[in-house]
Write a protein that binds this DNA or RNA. Structure first.
Lengths: 189, 189
DNA sequence: GCCGGATTAGGTCATGTGTCCTAATTTTGA
DNA sequence: TCAAAATTAGGACACATGACCTAATCCGGC
């Protein structure tokens, strides 16, 4: 209802601002203004800024978990599921060039701030790590699966970082292609 | 003497704090306290916070340029120079696990803040990019050299990010080994 | 001693979080 | 339907913090 709606709207706006401007650099007033509500109303739903952050992180985890589940359902093979993961880079190319990877940039900021929610941000990494590991296991990679999962995660993070540093160059597409090629060699080996 | 020394001390302290806590999260008072001087004295040397940031970035560029030059001098081959670059990850392992890559984390923060010094932070990337490209050219990689340089930069950034996310796992060493192995295949191909 | 750079202690000002309050307005449930 | 509960608006204010500024003092060389 309206109750849920406003709360959800706040989380949505905060999610966007935390991504585009960073957590510390986004104020209550900024979020309230983007939602179009008063500060008083804001505090009715969230007492502290950290509460919003927690809600944002929880939602991000839920959304991504749903997305990953859907990929497993619609993909013909674990390899195809992993290819879907790599293609996030291409689907979100525009935003990554501007703001980097939402997962990595939030984690990096919170880690630098020594913020208590750092662990929550790490959970998003964990979600992908565990999901990827399982896919590699299904591909028959056994003990190497976790290593492969972390490797792919790291590559993705690096691509996102460099894509932000050089947003006008065709770097991201090229690296995404290389990652897909890498996936093929892994599947064959 | 005392005058130069204080200014240099400020830059050193700011460099460290910007790395460990981030730029926005480091205050005038923090830096002054670390140096052991008053805030007023601080203002005598640097009128604005951005001035310190510029000085820090300039020093980082100089230091790294010197380091890269030294590698070229002491290495038997361009391949060995590039291997040196990869080994930064291992030499700075402890700090990377705690605070990430100084180049990447500062750039990411400034980019998110839309800070004017973002360009300066990007220059550090450029320094490595151009240096690596030249080394690959010397290895006879021709047109592919820039692509290889960016690829290696991205891999390094990703490794640093994941190493911070999972600081207790032996991930960094493993990936550094993989990068050195990759360098071998590039040299052969 | 004098002068000027170096340094200090102090204050100003803007901003952002968090608290509290009041008064509408809307929604819900008996 | 009607009263209670939930929601919204709006503002006042305490409090902390941090960037930025000023006046006074220190101190070494001439």
């Amino acid at each position: 209802m309206a109750r849920n709606s406003t709360r959800e709207n706040i989380i949505t706006a905060a999610d966007r601002l935390f991504y585009e401007r960073g957590f510390e650099n986004s104020s209550f007033a900024d979020v309230a203004q983007l939602v179009g509500i008063s500060r008083g109303n804001f505090y009715y739903h969230f007492k502290t800024k950290d509460e919003i952050l927690d809600a944002v992180i929880r939602r991000r985890i839920e959304e991504r978990a749903r997305m990953l589940d859907a990929w497993v359902d619609t993909s013909q093979s674990p390899k195809e599921s992993i290819a879907q993961f790599i293609r996030i880079l291409l689907m979100n190319e525009e935003k990554i060039r501007r703001y980097g990877c939402p997962v990595g940039s939030l984690f990096a900021e919170l880690a630098k701030l020594n913020h208590p929610a750092e662990g929550g941000a790490r959970e998003v990494f964990n979600l992908f790590r565990i999901w990827l590991r399982r896919r590699f296991e299904e591909m028959g990679k056994g003990q190497a699966s976790d290593r492969l999962a972390l490797h792919l995660l790291a590559r993705s993070q690096g691509v996102a970082m460099l894509a932000r540093a050089y947003p006008t160059e065709p770097f991201l597409e090229r690296e995404a292609e290389e990652l897909l090629a890498w996936l093929e060699t892994v599947a064959e080996g």
